[in-house]
């Protein structure tokens, strides 16, 4: 199950059903500050139903181009 994640810039909780993907990088946008937090998938174990992610830092805007 997906653990709660927080914005890497303002620490507000990140709310998402599925993360977004751009240039092979996963991210979630923050409703509070508008910044994007870069996410990394946690490798799955047998029986995992959906992919889960951990936050790794603020996603630079340049990485979405």
């Amino acid at each position: 199950m997906q653990a709660p994640l927080f914005c890497a810039a303002c620490e507000a909780p990140l709310v998402f059903d599925v993360p977004e993907l751009a240039n092979h990088r996963w991210y979630a946008g923050c409703a509070a500050c508008g910044k994007r937090t870069s996410l990394e998938a946690i490798p799955n174990d047998k029986g995992d139903d959906r992919a889960t992610f951990r936050a790794t830092g603020v996603l630079p805007k340049s990485s979405l181009r």
């Binding site: 599925v18 998938a41 490798p43 992919a51 992610f53």
Partner: peptide, 10 residues
């Protein structure tokens, strides 16, 4: 149901 499929996901 929309799901995310990361690299290496089985």
């Amino acid at each position: 149901e929309l799901v995310a499929l990361p690299l290496g996901w089985v």
